[in-house]
Write a protein that binds this DNA or RNA. Structure first.
Lengths: 111, 111
DNA sequence: CTTATGCGTCTACAATGTATACACAGCAGT
DNA sequence: ACTGCTGTGTATACATTGTAGACGCATAAG
């Protein structure tokens, strides 16, 4: 009975960052959101590899926004978290909330 | 500028579970704490491997409690989170708190 | 003595995390 | 036009984590 759908640390961050961008989740903004919040860099490789894995799991999908931008040759992805992705995210966080009960003082929450 | 000290998902759970046990953090209780909270099983292998790695990083230490219990032959570990472990835990959670801002409705918090 | 439960170790493999190099395009500035 | 900078996405490879299972030893109960 392993975790139903394990979500890695970075995967969760990517999902959250996409949600923060609402409808306008383009690569640059999402990456910068993570870099700001986590105070670290996010290489393209790390970013896209993770996105690809999240898509395979059905947690993220993207639409090709190139139609709007005739100048580009290749695709331009606009990302979105799927319903399944949201559910997985909730479950991962539920466990943490439970494990963190009563430890607020130790952990210095950000209320 | 990768994350200073990356803490995996499961590593964080182990640290939290130890903290929950305060001074009496023995293997069985810690493992059961995780199993209850995360609704999943934790094999001995997964558990001890993670503990060993956390120790190498200086985030966990243990004392040999066998002296109290003359019956046992081998060691009996009593676990504790180090100060560095606590700091790492705080930092990991800070990033999440920031990324989760404003998403409370979407994520179904546990207040 | 057999079964059950608990402690800890070791080994191996799967899943995630992460960087780097490749390739192309647009926009300054000189 | 040529150069440099920024941006998009892909492919590849390797490091770190996650996780299970087998091995060995010990105690308690039936």
């Amino acid at each position: 009975m392993s975790p139903k759908s394990f979500l890695g640390e970075f995967e969760q961050m990517v999902l959250l960052a996409i949600l923060q961008q609402a409808d306008e989740a383009f690569a640059l903004e999402v990456r910068r959101e993570i870099e700001r919040s986590a105070e670290r860099t996010v290489s393209r490789g790390a970013f896209y590899t993770t996105l690809d894995r999240l898509e395979r799991k059905g947690f993220v999908r993207w639409t090709d926004a190139v139609s709007q931008d005739t100048r580009r040759s290749g695709p331009l992805r606009r990302f979105a978290v799927t319903r399944a992705g949201l559910v997985a995210l909730r479950e991962s966080r539920k466990a943490f909330d439970t494990l963190s009960r009563g430890l607020d003082r130790l952990l210095g929450e950000t209320p």
